[in-house]
């Protein structure tokens, strides 16, 4: 990333131009950070603000007021709901989905990108088309399949269902990555005496690590984004994932537990963002340091 950015530095900037440009970039970034961060800041404030201040129209909304800071909302979230279990379930589902997705899409992506066989072209399109099938259309018929597999109202239902949208997309993504690896590298390895499988193992897979990481991240995010499947396949408190748990148990029609809702959103969302930031760096570095030059 640093190396990449260096390429964008102007060659011989005059000092003034340099300073002005920096100021502009920072101003732009601040603007974006404001837009992206405001809702998160609002979550943060709501999480720690006592109800008396939260619903007081005369209180200054952007910071804490006369009643100070409270941990009540977080206490409620942790002690009176299954939040901890939902978080654990979310992680279990997400990692299982990532694993299934990788196991299925990496080989498929490789085959579609680099092997010529009958029907490869139409398969590629066919697989991607399945990504277009809306979840709203699928979920009721899917219920029958899921229950036939004995997974209804279990985490397994989600682990089975989410790859239906991660596999098509990630297969395409992997195919894209495999395409960027020059054929010569693989051929060279095979001329050097590797079998094709050997070449895949020793050359192609290491080179596409960054791609796999990206795919993993996408599968992870996608499985945290779903709402419809999680809403309908699972309703036992101890089998819920976090976004459904928070929304279904903290909204009671007449009563929104805004403090706890925001606490849930904050605690579920921010760690993923940190993880993401970390992997994003790796991902960008992985590509720049990789085969594509």
């Amino acid at each position: 990333m640093a190396a990449l950015a260096a390429a964008y530095q102007p060659r011989r900037p005059s000092r003034l131009r340099h300073v002005r440009k920096r100021a502009l970039v920072y101003a732009g970034l601040c603007f974006y950070a404001f837009i992206a961060g405001l809702p998160v800041y609002w979550m943060f404030i709501t999480t720690f603000k006592p109800d008396q201040d939260l619903y007081n129209l005369r209180a200054f909304p952007l910071f804490f007021n006369q009643h100070g800071v409270t941990l009540d909302h977080i206490t409620l979230l942790f002690n009176r709901t299954g939040f901890v279990v939902w978080m654990r379930n979310t992680l279990v589902v997400a990692f299982a989905v990532v694993l299934i997705t990788l196991l299925v899409s990496v080989p498929a992506g490789y085959a579609l990108a680099r092997l010529r066989f009958r029907g490869a072209e139409s398969l590629t399109i066919g697989i991607f088309m399945t990504y277009l099938v809306p979840t709203t259309l699928l979920f009721l018929p899917l219920v029958k399949v899921i229950s036939w597999m004995g997974q209804f109202d279990k985490l397994g239902a989600l682990i089975l269902a989410y790859p239906t949208f991660t596999i098509p997309f990630c297969t395409w993504l992997m195919a894209g990555f495999f395409k960027t690896i020059p054929f010569e590298i693989e051929e060279a390895a095979m001329i050097d005496g590797c079998s094709r499988l050997g070449a895949i193992r020793r050359v192609i897979l290491p080179l596409s690590l960054a791609g796999m990481l990206t795919v993993g991240i996408f599968a992870f995010t996608l499985s945290m984004q779903d709402f419809v499947y999680a809403l309908t396949f699972v309703s036992s408190s101890d089998q819920k994932v976090v976004n459904i748990g928070v929304v279904t148990e903290l909204i009671r029609g007449d009563v929104f537990y805004w403090g706890s809702l925001m606490a849930g959103a904050l605690i579920a969302g921010v760690p993923v963002a940190i993880l993401y930031s970390f992997f994003l760096d790796y991902f960008v570095k992985g590509i720049t340091g990789g085969a594509v030059k």
């Binding site: 992206a36 925001m262 993401y276």
Partner: peptide
């Protein structure tokens, strides 16, 4: 990190946040 937040927070949770906003 800050700018990535909207993308990483599950959509159901951020929709609820926006509803509140």
């Amino acid at each position: 990190f800050v700018i990535l937040l909207p993308w990483t927070i599950p959509i159901a949770l951020s929709s609820i946040t926006w509803k509140w906003m």
